[in-house]
Amino acid sequence: MSTQDLPEQLRELVTEFHEVPEPDKLQLLLEFSRSLPELPARLGEHPEELEQVTECQSPLFLTVELDGSGADAPVALFFSAPAEAPTTRGFASILHEGLNGLPASQVLDVPDDLPERFGLTKLVSPLRMRGMSAMLGRIKRQIHARLGE
């Protein structure tokens, strides 16, 4: 699987998933689901400021903030998903670790087929994989909106 077109921190994640043997991939995803950061209090108290990703089969909310303006502004990602949805949390956590802090332009350049690159399609149903695609799509759309494009 090609990783040349990915930012460094994302490339490392894709490689990590590929180096793990098949039976341990789910365990790795579970570890990611546990490490998804909690929402900061200012957002936790205002859930209406988060956007629901309706393509996910479980409730998943996200929002994007830019630290500054322009295409070089670092992106901050915030996710909220219940503990009963570990797979959705795992996907959110991968995106958080892979994209958080990158300049806006780099996030926008992440290829849309990213979810297929983790080698999880055999383990996770197609509809769930589409949930991850939808998260990425909404992140990009919010960035475009914040940039005023």
């Binding site: 009963e84 055999k122 149903s125």
Partner: peptide
Amino acid sequence: DEDVLLYETGHIPGAVKVDWHTDLNEP
């Protein structure tokens, strides 16, 4: 479960997991 990881987050003691996608379907 619908969620392939939910069993791993905690299950009834003594229960085994059968996943619809990886165990029951033949791709």
